[in-house]
Amino acid sequence: MQRVCFLLNVRKDRIDAYRERHAAVWPDMLAALSAAGWHNYSLFLREDGLLVGYLETEDFDAAREAMAATEVNERWQRDMADFFEQPEAADDAMVPLAEVFHLA
């Protein structure tokens, strides 16, 4: 199982709305993530907008491609685009961090 961690930046003026949106993720989005192989997916948000994402998957590239092929992800990415400081879509800005330690 591949462990993936990535960083994004939520716009400071959208932090509360970002939290609200993730308190009620669409059921079809949750189902698509699971079907695409995203497991133990978590998002952590710092008060300054730093977002840390973590997930486990067999193949991160394949999991991202599977999500990119879904209609619900297209809608979600479009609806979430103005929450982020990055100019590209959040899915495209997910650059995995190098793991340097893991306590098994």
Rank of each mutant, 00 (worst) to 15 (best):
A69Y: 05
F6N: 03
F101I: 14
L7S: 11
H102E: 15
R78A: 10
V100E: 14
H39D: 14
C5W: 07
V10N: 00
Y54R: 05
D91I: 11
A81Q: 06
N73V: 03
E88M: 10
L50K: 12
E58F: 03
Y54F: 07
A89F: 04
A23F: 10
L103N: 15
L33R: 11
L103S: 15
A89E: 02
S42T: 15
E20W: 09
F60D: 00
L97S: 10
Q2A: 08
A17W: 08
H102I: 12
D61Q: 12
P96R: 08
E65W: 04
M94K: 01
A90H: 06
F101P: 05
A89G: 05
Y18P: 01
R14F: 04
F101K: 13
V100T: 10
R78S: 11
A23R: 14
M67K: 08
P27N: 11
R46Q: 13
G53M: 00
R78I: 06
V100Q: 12
L103G: 15
E58S: 11
R21I: 07
L33D: 03
P27S: 13
A66M: 05
S34K: 12
Q77T: 02
A104Y: 12
R19D: 05
P27D: 09
A17T: 10
R21Y: 09
W38T: 02
A62N: 07
M80S: 11
R14N: 04
R14L: 05
L55V: 02
A17H: 10
E56R: 13
M67N: 05
L7T: 13
Y18D: 05
D59T: 04
P96Q: 12
A63Y: 00
D48I: 07
L50A: 11
P87T: 08
F6A: 06
E71Q: 05
D61E: 13
R11Q: 15
S42E: 14
E58D: 13
W26C: 13
L33C: 13
F84R: 01
F83L: 07
D61H: 05
H39N: 15
A24P: 08
D48N: 15
Q86I: 04
W38A: 04
D61Y: 04
M67G: 03
D16Q: 14
F101G: 15
W38K: 03
L50C: 11
F84N: 02
L8C: 12
A36L: 12
P96F: 05
W38E: 03
D59K: 03
F60L: 01
Q77D: 06
D82F: 04
L45W: 09
Q77Y: 01
F84D: 00
A24K: 15
D13C: 14
M67H: 05
L51S: 03
V95Q: 11
S34T: 07
A24Y: 05
Q86K: 08
A36R: 01
V100K: 14
A24E: 12
L51A: 09
A66H: 02
L51E: 00
W26A: 15
D28P: 13
E47S: 13
